[in-house]
Each structure stands twice: as structure tokens, then as C-alpha cells.
Simulated assay, not measured.
Amino acid sequence: MSFAWRWMHENLQLVILLAIVSLALSFMLMVLLNVTAKKEIALVVNGQHRQVETTHRTLQHLLDEQAILVGAHDYISASPLSEIKDGDMIRIDHAVPVHVTADGQTKTVYTTASTVQDVIKANQITISEHDKVFPSPDTAINGDMDIKIVRVEKKLEERQLTVPFQIVTKEDPTLAAGKEKLVQKGQEGVVIQKIENIFQDGKLVSSVMVDKTVQNETKDKIVAVGTKKETPQVTVLSAKSPDMATTTKNDVTFSYKKVLKNVSLTAYSAEEDGIGTKTASGTRVTEGRTIAVDTKVIPMGWWVYIEGIGFRRAEDKGGAIKGNKIDVYIDSLKEAKRFGRKKGHTVYVIGPNKPEAS
């Protein structure tokens, strides 16, 4: 056995100890080399890319080295306590505050979401079909943004409306003038409307009629109005007709057979073409005495007293003198025209004899 082998045999324990120490030193050297070796890490902070070199072993040490703070609401792609390796990519998104108003309440939330829709989803806010979101769901998030959710509710309502009937008049030639007769009773109509009421956050903002049904038809009230002109009843006067009463006019007291109300007065003159000086009764026209009358109302030759005019005698007649109308004779055509037409006179029909003052 050579000297070396004999020595190793005699000092086996020492050899083993030296081997263990050698291995430990090698391991420590490898660890030291690994710790002190530079690593290239890709950092993406709020969407901004940058490459950094570090000799640190954990992510937290790298963040401290780069003065990057990570809050409770921020997003980080790996645990700060995890070891980093060369070529790793670390993503960090810092949360921003946004103000969300919904259901009458406003709260501030911190989010790393990229759109309004993501914020709504992350906060478990339910959006119905008709609800409105401001700004629109696809709007990008920025700090201190206001997000408002308007609750929209549609409700159908039925309304019953009464439609009034119209009154329709129709002329009836078989009915006396001034008389009325009910032909058809009026009936109110009933209409059922369907109204869509739209509420935003509980407040009514619009009402629209979406349907209409006629429940009862409207019937007009029809009234017949008489147009038939009745032939006036004419009382035929004679000297034997009884007196109605006695009155005094211009200091003359007389009895009369009849009183005519609302008599219309006109005047005529012998100077007019076609008017002669002889009356229909055969007398000569005389101003202050002669009048033309409707002999069905005032008998020919009878005296009358005209309020505002005086005593006159029915001595003439004319085609235009009908009913309660009297034509007073005046010599002057100019004065006759000036007389014009006078209405509303009262006339006392006396008889064939002129009253005389007592």
C-alpha cells in the first residue's frame, strides 16, 4: 500500500470532514453567485413598460428599490414575497377612485377596471333592460370619474274617459216654428286608454298612450226644431164686437175693441209716382186723418188711436201693408221720407165712429 493510501486509511475521518467542508463551501459559493447575479425584469406599471436590472432575490425588494408602492386596492401579478428570476414580467395597476351613484346612494370605489361596464360588474350592480348608464358602459375609466345609473321603470295604466255627446238640431217643416221635439236621446261614450308611464329613479318623466279601445259609442242628441209658419188667427172686427176697455188720450175718453202692440209705422204721399189722391175707400187722402191698413186687422173706415201720432182713420190699403203695419199719409213727399220707419207703437182700434171730447 502506497503512502498516500495508507495515510488516507489512517485518517479516514479527517478526509470525510474535509470533503463535507469542501461541498459546503461550494454550495455557499453557488448561492452567493446566484444572489449577486444581475437579473433583467420587465415591469409594466399602469400600462407603461420598462426594463430594470436587479440583484435582489424577492419582488418586494425590487419594488422597494424602484420606489413602487402597491396599495390594498392595486393589482400586482405576483406576490411581493415571491422570488424573481431573470426574464420575469411583473404587471402592476394602481387603483383609481370613481364615484358610483345608484338607487339613491353615491359611494366611492377604488378600481383597476378599464371600462365603466367592468366597474359595474366588479361591484355586483345589477342593470335591468331599461336602465340608463352614464357615461356609456364602454367608456374608459379615469380618476375621480362620476358614474350614474338611472333606474328606468315602465308601468301600464288604464284610464276610462267619458266622451260627451253633441246636440244636433234639424229643421222640421211639419213642426210649428219655435217648437222643439226630441228625436234621439244623447248617450255619452266611454273610451279605455292604455297609458305607458315611464319613471326614472321613481319620478314620472313621461306618459304615452299606447292603445285605445272604444267601450261605448257616443250617440248625438238630435232635436227637431219646427219651421212651419202658422197662419195667424185674425179676429174679424165689426161694430157689434164688444169693447175691451175705456181709456183717455189727449183729453178724449173712448172705448176700444182691440189693442195692437209693436206696430210698425211708415209714411206715404200723393206726390209719389203711382199714388193718387183718392183712397181705396173712395175718400180723398187727407193729412192728419188718412192711414193705409191691412183690412184683416183694422176694418176699412174705422178709427184708431196711434200712440205718439193721434187719431187716424183707416181709409186706404196697399199690397205692402200686412199685419201690424200702418202707412200714415203725409202731403209732402219730403216729409214722408223723413218720417222713415218707426217701430214699437201701440194702436187702439176704436170703431167706425171718431171719439169726441166730452
Rank of each mutant, 00 (worst) to 15 (best):
L175S: 06
P135L: 09
K228S: 11
S241D: 04
D172F: 04
G189N: 01
Q200H: 14
T213C: 01
G202F: 11
M145C: 10
Q184C: 11
Q187P: 02
F165Q: 03
T235L: 10
N250A: 15
Q200A: 03
S206I: 11
V210S: 09
A176G: 05
N142G: 13
V205K: 09
N250E: 14
V223D: 01
T246Q: 10
M244A: 13
N142V: 12
T247A: 05
T247Y: 01
G143N: 10
K132G: 07
I198M: 07
V133N: 02
K240Q: 15
D243Q: 09
N197W: 04
I222W: 02
L161F: 09
T162K: 15
K155M: 08
T247K: 02
A224V: 06
K148C: 07
K194T: 15
Q215R: 14
L182V: 14
G189V: 06
T169D: 10
K229G: 07
K170N: 10
V234L: 14
K148N: 13
K155C: 01
I147H: 06
D146C: 10
I198G: 00
G143R: 12
A140I: 07
G189K: 00
D138L: 12
K221F: 07
K132E: 14
S207G: 12
E158Y: 12
D131E: 10
S241N: 06
V168C: 10
I222H: 01
D172I: 00
G189E: 01
V133S: 05
V236C: 07
A239W: 08
D172T: 09
D243L: 13
K203P: 02
D243K: 08
V208H: 06
T246F: 01
P135Y: 06
V191M: 02
K179L: 12
D201Q: 07
P164N: 11
E158I: 12
P242M: 00
P137N: 07
V163F: 05
K212S: 15
K170H: 08
A177G: 03
T227S: 05
I192V: 11
V150R: 00
V205G: 05
G226F: 00
F165V: 09
M244N: 08
K229T: 14
A245C: 09
